[in-house]
């Protein structure tokens, strides 16, 4: 399977530009994390890539072929979304059967294993399922269906901690057995931080970060110490956020530190985790709204 190419994609709702000049290469057999705040346009991006809604400009292609109404391509993609597209009166078991028929194949053994592990009743009608079990149903399909690209929009919505553990286990197990691409969008960043190889940060309609998780984490620093020293040391650096406790100051930096600038004895430099990094990178959005 070839990469999905998203080129100069624009999505406009009335006068509101939700996505603006997005270009991405979605490579085979890779686990991606799409991070963005509420309303950043993550679901819209997913909906466009899977041809559920049209784009205003740009293109989405595989091997130069546009994805629009192209079954050959669409049938290799599964999008698990919050929207409920299954017939509401249909039973869980029937939905599995239907999916197996419409997609080119499905691992029915995995379906029955996961159904059992999650305690999903195949006789229940879709509209009688709780939010959590709707997610579970869609996750089971997402992991079992024979596709090359799986997009998971808030996969753990309504799942308790045990079920989330079970899901991550199943995801990695399935990925090991049959490598394919997963693009995961979630607010539970800590839980997927070690899982994802590549991070996309979607902010104000743009992809502001497109890097491997490792590289991104290497660029995130917390500089801690007395305020004057920290401010002096981080002058001219890309300070993305700060914490203040009395005279103790933490400046969060994203990017290179200045190599030849000596670190004062009073100041300590450490890396920060993905969640902290993301929160600091994207907290300005709210600040600008508040001002």
């Amino acid at each position: 399977m070839k990469p999905i190419k998203v080129a100069h994609l624009v999505k406009q709702f009335n006068k509101n530009r939700v996505l603006d000049d997005i270009s991405l290469n979605i490579q085979p057999d890779t686990i991606y994390g799409l991070l963005g705040r509420n309303g950043a346009g993550k679901s819209t991006l997913f909906n466009i890539i899977t041809n559920r809604i049209p784009m205003s400009a740009g293109e989405v292609t595989i091997e130069g072929e546009p994805i629009a109404n192209n079954d050959r391509v669409l049938n290799r993609i599964y999008l698990m979304s919050e929207g409920n597209l299954y017939p509401s009166r249909m039973r869980v078991g029937e939905i599995f059967k239907l999916t197996a028929g419409l997609y080119q194949g499905m691992d029915l053994e995995l379906v029955s294993n996961l159904t059992q592990q999650f305690g999903l009743d195949v006789k229940t009608r879709f509209n009688k399922l709780s939010t959590g079990y709707r997610s579970i149903l869609k996750l089971i399909i997402a992991l079992s269906v024979d596709v090359d690209y799986v997009f998971l929009d808030e996969p753990t919505l309504g799942l308790d901690a045990n079920h989330r553990e079970l899901f991550y286990d199943a995801l990695l197990d399935s990925y090991a057995k049959r490598p394919r691409t997963f693009v995961i969008s979630t607010h539970l960043i800590e839980e997927i931080a070690n899982l994802i190889e590549q991070v996309w940060v979607l902010q104000n309609g743009h992809i502001t970060i497109n890097e491997s998780t490792e590289e991104m984490l290497q660029k995130g620093y917390a500089i801690t110490g007395p305020t004057e020293d920290v401010v002096a040391y981080t002058a001219g650096l890309n300070v993305i956020g700060q914490d203040q406790l009395g005279n103790l100051r933490v400046n969060y930096v994203y990017g290179e530190l200045v190599g030849d600038r000596a670190i004062p004895d009073t100041v300590s430099v450490s890396h920060i985790d993905l969640q902290k990094l993301f929160v600091n990178l994207t907290s300005q959005e709210v600040a600008t709204v508040e001002n």
């Binding site: 991550y168 286990d169 990695l172 990925y175 839980e191 070690n194 190889e197 490792e214």
Partner: peptide, 15 residues
């Protein structure tokens, strides 16, 4: 195995 460690600790197998 890579898979076992990956699954146990929820780390990407490539890592």
């Amino acid at each position: 195995s890579t898979t076992e460690i990956s699954k146990q600790f929820h780390i990407n197998p490539a890592t």
